[in-house]
Computed example of a mutant assay.
Amino acid sequence: MKTYSEAELTAQPIGYWTGAAYRAVVGRIRAELAVEQLTQPHWWILNHVAGAPGRWERGGLTERLTPFDDQGTDFAAVFDDLEGRGWVVRAGDGSLTLSEVGEQGRLRARERNMRAHEEMHKGITPQEYAATLTILRRVIDNLGGDSDLP
């Protein structure tokens, strides 16, 4: 990676760089998930259901995840897909759990994402990463956005 002076870097537009980082990071994550024929909303659902079996139902989980969606996702179709695959099971009361095959698929996708995250963090110390997030949160807060952790 080429190095630049502090003056050159501070003259750069943060909007460009945060957008470029977003496209690179999310593009990589989406590519890894696609190997399992999953989208990010599939991934979010699988992880929420795995983390709290029987706690979530479709409506509540859709409400929880919609603020993170930037693709206009039809969550009903994603739930239908996961249930159709037999990965998510809906009980009579509407609560959701993962099947064994669903958990196996989630773990495969998790492993792929972990490798991608390791690659993303290469050459970055935990302190640098935390400082970067703190700065981005400050920018968001300065502009009146929600800087709390999800």
Rank of each mutant, 00 (worst) to 15 (best):
R137F: 05
E119W: 08
A24E: 08
A131K: 09
D70Y: 02
I29K: 05
G84T: 09
E57G: 11
L98K: 02
L98F: 02
D146E: 13
T134V: 09
Y22W: 11
D69S: 01
I135Y: 12
R112Y: 07
I14L: 14
V26K: 00
R112T: 10
M120G: 10
D148Y: 07
F75N: 04
L9T: 15
L136E: 12
D141Y: 13
R115Y: 10
E8I: 11
D148H: 14
T3I: 11
R64A: 07
G123V: 13
V49T: 03
R64P: 03
T62Y: 01
R64F: 09
I45C: 03
R30C: 07
E36A: 08
K122T: 15
Y22V: 02
F68P: 02
L38R: 12
Q104I: 15
A109P: 01
Q40I: 07
I29T: 08
G15P: 06
I14R: 12
P41V: 04
D69F: 03
D69T: 05
N142T: 10
V49Y: 00
A77K: 06
I124W: 04
V78I: 12
V78E: 00
R112W: 04
Y16R: 15
L46W: 05
M1A: 13
R55A: 08
E118D: 15
R58K: 07
M120A: 14
E128F: 07
A77P: 01
L46P: 09
T39H: 03
R108A: 14
Y22H: 07
G54M: 04
A7F: 13
D93I: 09
E119S: 14
N142C: 09
R58Q: 03
D80T: 09
L149P: 08
T18N: 12
T97Y: 00
Q37H: 11
R108D: 13
T66C: 04
G94Q: 10
R85T: 08
E119R: 15
V88T: 09
P41F: 00
L82N: 06
S99I: 11
R108F: 12
I124N: 04
G19L: 02
R28F: 01
P67E: 08
R55V: 09
E6P: 08
D81F: 03
P13E: 15
A77I: 04
P126M: 07
A21N: 11
P53G: 05
A77G: 08
R138A: 14
D141K: 14
M1Q: 11
P150E: 14
R90H: 02
R64H: 12
V26F: 03
F79A: 00
L133E: 14
A31M: 00
W56H: 07
T18H: 13
G72R: 08
F79Y: 02
Q40S: 01
E83H: 00
L82A: 05
I124M: 07
R90M: 00
Q37G: 05
A52E: 09
S5K: 11
L136K: 10
D80L: 00
L46G: 06
G51M: 00
P53W: 00
Y16D: 15
G51N: 05
E32I: 04
T97E: 11
